[in-house]
Design a protein around this nucleic acid. Sequence first.
DNA 1: AGAAAAGTTTAAGAAAAGTTAAAGATTAAA
DNA 2: TTTAATCTTTAACTTTTCTTAAACTTTTCT
Lengths: 225, 225
Amino acid sequence: MTRILIVEDDPTINNLICEYLTEKDFDCSQAFSGTEGRLLFDMETFDLILLDLMIPGLTGEALIAHIRSASQVPVIVLSAKAALEDKVQLLSTGADDYLTKPFELEELLARIRVQLRHKASGSSPASAALHYKDWKLDEQARAFLVKGERLELTAHELGIITLFMKYPKKVFTKQEIFESVWHQDYFVEDKTINVHISNIRSKLKETGTDSYIQTVWGIGFKLKE
Amino acid sequence: MTRILIVEDDPTINNLICEYLTEKDFDCSQAFSGTEGRLLFDMETFDLILLDLMIPGLTGEALIAHIRSASQVPVIVLSAKAALEDKVQLLSTGADDYLTKPFELEELLARIRVQLRHKASGSSPASAALHYKDWKLDEQARAFLVKGERLELTAHELGIITLFMKYPKKVFTKQEIFESVWHQDYFVEDKTINVHISNIRSKLKETGTDSYIQTVWGIGFKLKE
DNA sequence: AGAAAAGTTTAAGAAAAGTTAAAGATTAAA
DNA sequence: TTTAATCTTTAACTTTTCTTAAACTTTTCT
């Protein structure tokens, strides 16, 4: 389902848009401040972002800049500002379209569809990001984010995390991990996987999420329930 | 066969749905309260859940949250509430679809088929779960649940339980258990299996289900009828 | 009933599995 | 080519699980 993030501080307008779009089969998340919007953007993956410019916590412009530093997701700005210079500046900043308040919901929907169509026709196959608790993994960018912050992992470490996040309930034996991540038959020293797990955990420790990787004695490893 | 859980406190409606779906070749389980629904969900595995929101014992919302904490099974909400805000919240809470009462059974069937189709096309390999009375065993997650609660077992203990649950009527000799679980010929001390059985029973004792493992004198062990 | 066989339980040492730090080997980058 | 990063292996250490032994209980057989 298409996921849309609505960043709008006025609850009435936010809910109105949310209800309308939900009815139209979109999956909406709501943020009521710039900082909340940034948090949601960092932690989840959206197909489109609706953004009010006049929001507390972080200016709309700053949020666009933040979004553009990490993603090409379409951004439609909702603004009371009508002055042309603002519009121009916005579009050059990174917004893909704008709508001046008040606007008709039908028009909003039409513009959303336009942006999504652009997105769909252009570019690469969108690789959905994986989520697990407050971990986020963007496979395409090979970026691993904890609580929105990037954590540097080596190739094998990322491979192991990716495997875990694809099947968050499965227990993986060391053999399974090795064959899946190394793409070879299992003949490395048994301990190698252990060492990598240990290294991943120690990197995770800084984020307080090292307990997410659990040891299943006699079997292997898995993500926490 | 496709298994559907119906959580609906009105017996007339519950039975009506159950009979209709049974006729359409679904395997239905009925719950008449939120708590009963949770119990059945924890103990068995369903392909889809129909959930009335206005149920005694546990609110529908809380039940959805509980379900979502453990599973991606499709949930269709049956509700008398027509207010849009409720629908929005529901869908964002974790429901996959909703139907406002009164509804046609044909529409319900259509929506069930849509959800099952979605499920089938998407994602992860279905991990078959084993069931025996109020025991549930998820082989992929290596999780053993008694009355919905996880019970920690060591690798060998889990191996023994798995063997029993695969053939719930068979009597296993100690030699069979050893060769099946240890993957070796039988030359350990005879008593080893006994000790493991004893340890399993003592862990089960906390759940009140230790009597499920029965001793067959002179032969071995089996699950209770 | 009494003896023998089979099963149960507890406890303790042995064995297996896992963790971590560190050093050497390998690979990639500057 | 030199430097840096990553990977594998080794080894000492910790934790969990397994096996054995021994004392005790229940069932079966004579």
